[in-house]
Nucleic acid binder design. Sequence first.
RNA 1: GGAGGGGUGGCUGAGUGGUCGAAAGCGGCGGUCUUGAAAACCGUUGACCUUUCACGAGGUCCCAGGGUUCGAAUCCCUGCCCCUCCGCCA
Length: 425
Amino acid sequence: MLARELLRQSPDRVRQALTDRSADPAPVDLWLGLDADRRRNLVEVEELQRQRNEASKAIGERKRRGEDASVAIAAVGETKQRIDALEKELAGIDENLRAVELALPNVPSHDVPVGPDESANRLVRTVGEITAFDFEPQAHWDLGPALGILDFERGAKLAGARFTAYFGLGARLERALIQYMLDLHLEEHGYTEVLPPYLVSSDALVGTGQLPKFAEDLFKVEGNDLYLVPTAEVPLTNLHREEILEAADLPLRYTAYTPCFRAEAGSHGRDVRGLIRQHQFNKVELVQLVEPERSDAALEELTVHAETILQRLELPYRTVCLSTGDMGFSAAKTYDIEVWLPGQQAYREISSCSNCGDFQARRAGIRYRPAEGDKPTYVHTLNGSGLAVGRTLIAILENYQQADGSVVVPEVLRSYLRTDRITAS
RNA sequence: GGAGGGGUGGCUGAGUGGUCGAAAGCGGCGGUCUUGAAAACCGUUGACCUUUCACGAGGUCCCAGGGUUCGAAUCCCUGCCCCUCCGCCA
């Protein structure tokens, strides 16, 4: 949610932000109208309430003295009716205002490249050399089944397209990656591990921005106000919803492994093969709640935290800064980390690290007190994948594959996997 | 699933439908005292919104949402959450 002061004082900036995102700027004017209506109405209601309170007080006093108050009671009746009518109107305005506010995306940071889509993304850095092969590298959807560690047909038998069953060292590799990533973030990057619920309420999803606009991307539990988490960003960021934190508590750094569930509505036909786009995938997430002045630096750090995993796994990747047209709804600035996949001869997203500024904090009511006696202000929230586990497994299979179809296990994972090579059994 | 008991300010905990945003205690902050600290004493101590250049003024909030009433923390309804006992269950 955007600050109301921003909308009132700099509507042009918000209109421009929407245009840069290839979104319709019209809601800004709708908002301005509703806001003016609201304030006009509110001033009137409050004046009438003041009159009513005064009258009620006088009635109470008369009654206490045993005097007749029926005249005064009758006199207040009209005020009461006007209050009721205006309050009803006000509730309607508030509801509309909130609906408009909740649908407005965040304003991009000034240093974000302006452009319509991913073609305008800015390359930040490229790390590692593209893996060279003296044979034709296979895609993971061929390697995995051949090794007996990924079974797409049986996954589909259980749950349909975009579900996969892992077997043997495949399952173990996925588990090892989760463990390795968590350990690294705990031990070296100062995060606190959290094991959150995998189902969350609509309030939590509104807090991080998935709702109300993107309900069709979510799996909802029938008959309950519960949704399968699309990312651990949702539970982690919402841990402190409606709280006022102390400055000394910040920064808060949380990491969690969760499965992630996405309906992938509107992506029919995209990445239908293999593990890349699944309805259920595993992810280790990084979330930070920080003081506003610290969030720019925190995004750089968090992105490096995610990149470190790829460096330790010795996987080639590049980092790009998303353009205004390619960013997510809640983000002010986003770095995507893209890993090299030899099977596709392409860099593919494996992590997305965003600074959401106070956008989510406003929605979720996460504040802190800068100093004793200060008014509470909104924290800044950041999140990033550290990393998407399924896609990391793909990257390992494709980059570490050998001419004989076996896969060498990256050095740092050998103690977790208890083997240095995955071969067909 | 059955039966019962609760949800009040940072915490504990009062609160006959009417000067209650809410007693009291604790904690926090400021001060007096002290060489310093502790103790004691005094004062202070919520959030949000509107309005004002400002001082200030006003409104809302006692889990949430409805309702009754001139007036609701207090009465009624619904929901959510917590606790105890029983049943069931990983």
